[in-house]
Simulated scan of single mutants.
Amino acid sequence: MNSTVKENVSKVPEVVLVFWIIKIAATTLGETGGDAVSMSMNLGYLVGTALFAVLFAVAVTAQVSAKRYHPLLYWTTIIATTTVGTTLADFFDRSLGIGYAGGASILFVLLVASLSTWYRTMGSVSIDTVRTKKAEIFYWVTIMFSQTLGTALGDWTADTAGFGYAKGVVVFTMLLVAVVAAYYWTRISRTTLFWTAFILTRPLGAVVGDLLDKPHSSGGLALSRYSASAVLLTLILISLYSFPQMAAQKHH
């Protein structure tokens, strides 16, 4: 009986407006925070990835082991995925010389493989079904790939495709607006739209983060990565405590 109750407890938040506000802030923080460690501290992408990978492993272990939904723990884990995603994507794209297009392509294949395996194993990739440890592991692996892909995609759009950071923000904002429109005016699967929006918020955060902290010569605002990260973290904490989130409810 107790194990059945535990299996039915959701430890992910309900997807409402504040969820998306915090998600975009968290992904932007991942960009500025990841760059602060790898660039401003001059630790490099490999060391930065190793440090954030440890944080990610600790956070995911705590999240999966938790008995109920803890907002601070959940969003700490999200931030951990987005920071390690930033440094990992930069390591692949720049240090290994794969390039943004190559890195994004590889990560897209990994993301699709993760979602496909999850669907074949569990029968659904809806967040409503993330109520077992196995589903949680699929959930966080998928998020990890989506965050890393988002970094590569954001960098490719701003740099290789030549849009720059400001236009990159417009591009991904408009894509998210299209997803919102599809949510209200089409019958496209809500699960498909959720994951599409979830993935798109990461490159949006990447280009916003770069817009904030890259030098003027590169089209950025040249703000301090530490200051930008502190402001974003404050925004996340204020949002969490001002608008408490409920755990996702099972829909019948």
Rank of each mutant, 00 (worst) to 15 (best):
A62H: 11
H70T: 11
W75E: 09
T76A: 15
V64F: 10
G102Y: 03
P71D: 10
A62W: 13
L88Y: 05
V64W: 08
A80I: 02
S105I: 05
S95H: 07
R94C: 06
A101D: 01
V64P: 11
R94G: 05
G102P: 02
T87C: 13
A104R: 00
F92L: 15
S105V: 09
G102L: 03
L72P: 00
P71Q: 09
R94M: 12
A62E: 11
F92A: 13
S65W: 05
A101H: 00
F92H: 02
L107M: 05
Y69T: 03
W75N: 08
V84F: 12
G102C: 03
D93F: 04
T81Y: 08
T86D: 15
A101Q: 00
T87Y: 07
T86H: 14
Y74C: 06
L73T: 06
T76L: 15
L88H: 01
Y69A: 11
T87H: 06
H70N: 14
G85C: 11
F91T: 00
I79S: 07
A101Y: 00
R94Q: 14
T77P: 12
R68S: 14
L107A: 04
Y100R: 00
K67T: 10
I78C: 13
L107P: 01
S65K: 13
T61C: 08
T77E: 05
G103S: 10
L88E: 02
T61K: 09
G103Q: 01
L73C: 12
A89D: 06
T82E: 13
A89S: 15
A89K: 04
A89N: 04
T86R: 14
A62P: 08
R68H: 13
T86K: 14
P71Y: 08
A66H: 11
G85L: 10
A80R: 05
D93P: 00
W75R: 06
A80N: 09
G97E: 02
Y74T: 00
D90M: 10
A66T: 03
A89L: 08
Q63W: 03
L73D: 11
L72T: 06
A80F: 07
K67M: 05
D93A: 15
S95E: 12
L88Q: 02
T86V: 11
G102I: 02
G99E: 01
A62Y: 10
R94L: 15
D90T: 04
T83D: 08
G97M: 03
H70P: 07
T61R: 10
T81E: 09
